[in-house]
Structures are given as structure tokens and as C-alpha cells.
Design a binder for these strands. Structure first.
Lengths: 203, 203
DNA sequence: CCTCTCTTTGACCAGTTGGTCAAATCACGA
DNA sequence: TCGTGATTTGACCAACTGGTCAAAGAGAGG
């Protein structure tokens, strides 16, 4: 039986997760040190290891918590809503997440890029199940003539990639644009992109 | 004055670059060791350092060589060609590169993700100049009514992100699709996506 | 066959890093 | 106030890693 967490445990675990996010998202798993995380968390290194078994444990805990947050916007895609508005709303939510939670996006991207060794299972279970479910919804919308014909899986991939790009490749985007904040224009562009993609041709 | 390279130098430098690509793209800069690269190259560790000053030097050399290859498809965007075909051709070339050179794509992605500390300058010079130049071309196509109104910078970003996604996030894509090769469907999907985006509305 | 340069390597080193541990300190309910 | 379990830490360690170096080993031209 798990004992309930004390207040101190809650506070310190949260501080460690927060510090871990900050550090891991900047330097990756191998590029980050326990000392860095400890300092960011305001704790000593052995103290970190009192709360988490190992560096990997911090990283894995972070990823798993993150995955939920990451799936949430897709989960909210409502089969009952207006199809195009639902998809565009999803795009908007994802882009907003890139803007407001770039560290989370980068941490996740880094993990996938390196082969997702810590969350491979989650991807082929939870993520796959969720996407498959939503793909069915999109296919129904298409069959009902509410949206133009489209491969639902690749539609979702393209939403992920275009929106997350503004978090993961932020330096590149800003280098190209010369420092201008990209998000307003990105929002307009992506809205147009997916609107044109999905609007059914006039009969 | 630089002396010309001997055959042995050419062979070994090439072997090191190749090994470096293999290893760095799998584990990132910090996650890779000289021993790994040495073994992959079939050389001893001190021998590596006879050809390259440091681990960083191998990595940087790799990135710089890579950047050229990476810019090349965009360079080939022909202002004289048919606008929509030119863009779709660019998309096709980029997706093909993701399929055939995933290691290069991942290495590059990893560098950008971690803040591009080794190539920041290249991004804000070479890359920025090239994109700006092509953005002008796209604006002219738009002004001539050859393509629908579109933000040229974000158009390019969306081409990068959607195509590179299939290399960088390969594990995730395959986890979702259950192992089916994604590239054929991706090609069709992206062709449709950008065709619908760019086809001007009938007057 | 000699020699000069290029190439290769075994042995080594110092700094870093993840992780341990015993002892000290703290928090809180009785 | 006291006792007990939770919390914190200084000191330490073994493994790893990037990098050095002196010396040995090839290769090619004379």
C-alpha cells in the first residue's frame, strides 16, 4: 500500500519535475546533469535521489506526465461538432500549446527523435488508440460530405508537424524571420491551410 | 598554404564523417562517444583525433556539409517554372530526402532543437538569405494570380515541417500506423494538401 | 636500402558524472 | 517536551569520457 505524500514530498517532487523540464528540454537527457537539475530545483544532488531513484526516473516521470497533456487537445476533438471548426480548433489549440509550452514540446520531440526508447510502448498503445479513434470520426465526416476527401492519419500528422514546428524549430524560424514573433502569422497561415484543405468543393 | 589531401586522409576523413553521421544521428552530440564513432569508423580513438581536432570538430564539420545538401532542394525552386508544379516538386524532393536521408534530417533536427549553437550563424545568414529570396518569388507568383494568396515564409515552414516529420518522428508515425510504410500515402497527402492550398479560386 | 614524413596506437590522465551512505537534522503527533 | 520517522547533506567512489603523448609502424621517393 502506498502511503499518502507529505506536503514536503509534494513540493519537492514538483520542484524537481519543474527543474527537470527546464533542464532536459534545453540539453536533452544525456546533455543534462543531476547537478544542473538539483541547482534548478534548489536541492542538493543526494536530495534529488531521495525523491527519484535515478536521473532516468525523473526523465521518464516527466515524459509520462507530459504525454497526457499532449494528447488532451486531440481528445477534445468533438465528433458532434462542426467538422471544419473542430479541426481548425484543434490546430489552434496545438499552436497555442507550442507557444505557451515550448519546453514540453521540445522535450517530447527530443525523445521521439532519439527513437522514443522511454515511451515506445505508450506510443503504440495510448497514442495509437486515440488517433485511430479520431481517424474514424474524420472518415465519417468525409463520408457525410462535410469535409473534402482526406487521409485522416496524415491530416493529423500534418497538424502535429506544422504546429509543433514553431516550438521545436523556434530558433530556425526566428533566424529566418529575423526575430519577428511568428505566432500571429502562423495562426492565420495554418487556419487558411487547413481550411482550404478541408473545405469540400462546391457540388 | 594547405597541402593537398593524401588518399589515406580522404578515405579516413570520409569514414569518420560517415561514422559520425551514423552515431550522432542516433544519440545526439552529448549522447555519442568518441569510442562509438571510432568503432563505427574502424579506427582507434587517437586516430580519430589525428584527423579531427575534437569531437565537436567532427560534429561541426558534419553539420556544415549537411547544411548545403539541405538547402539544395529549395535552391532548385525555379522562378521561371510553373508555380504550383514548382512548389509541389519542392515538396516531393523534400519528402524523398526524408525517406532516403533520415539520419541527416535527424541530426539537423537535433541541432536545431537544442538551440542550434553550432550553426546559428549559418541560419541567420545563408538560410535566411535563401528563404527571403524565394519568398520574393512566391509573392510574385501570388501577385500574378498564379497561386492563391499565401504567406510565403509560413508556406515554406509548413513544407519543411510536414516533410521532415516523416524522418524526424518516424518512430511515432510508425507506432500510430502500426508499422505500415508511410511514405507513399504521405506523398499523396502532401501533394493534395499543398495543391489545395495554392490553387487559386476560380475567378 | 635508407630516410623523411605521414599514420597509427597503447598507455595514460584529469575532469565529469551518476549514484551511495552514514550521519546529522528536522517535523510533527503523542 | 520527546521520540520517531522523514528529510537533508558532506564526503566519497567507480565508471566513463575527451583528449594527450611518446613511440612504433607504414609508405614513397631517392
Amino acid at each position: 500500500m502506498n502511503k499518502p505524500e507529505t506536503r514536503i514530498q509534494q513540493r519537492n517532487r514538483a520542484a524537481i519535475m519543474s527543474a527537470g523540464l527546464e533542464v532536459f528540454s534545453q540539453f536533452g537527457l544525456r546533455g543534462s546533469t543531476l547537478d544542473q537539475i538539483a541547482e534548478a530545483a534548489g536541492l542538493s544532488k543526494p536530495n534529488l535521489l531521495y525523491y527519484f531513484r535515478s536521473k532516468d526516473a525523473i526523465y521518464t516521470a516527466l515524459l509520462e506526465k507530459l504525454l497526457e497533456t499532449w494528447l488532451d487537445p486531440l481528445l477534445k476533438l468533438d465528433p458532434q461538432g462542426d467538422p471544419i471548426q473542430e479541426v481548425l480548433g484543434y490546430v489552434r489549440r496545438k499552436l497555442t500549446m507550442s507557444k505557451e509550452y515550448p519546453r514540453e514540446s521540445r522535450l517530447f520531440a527530443n525523445e521521439i527523435l532519439l527513437g522514443a526508447p522511454h515511451i515506445a510502448e505508450h506510443l503504440s498503445k495510448d497514442l495509437r488508440a486515440l488517433v485511430t479513434e479520431k481517424a474514424v470520426v474524420i472518415r465519417e465526416w468525409e463520408a457525410a460530405g462535410k469535409i473534402a476527401p482526406v487521409d485522416p492519419y496524415h491530416l493529423i500528422f500534418s497538424i502535429w508537424s506544422t504546429t509543433q514546428h514553431y516550438a521545436d524549430f523556434d530558433v530556425q524560424v526566428r533566424a529566418v524571420l529575423g526575430g519577428i514573433d511568428p505566432f500571429d502569422d502562423a495562426m492565420k497561415y495554418l487556419d487558411t491551410l487547413f481550411r482550404r484543405m478541408l473545405t469540400p468543393p462546391k457540388a
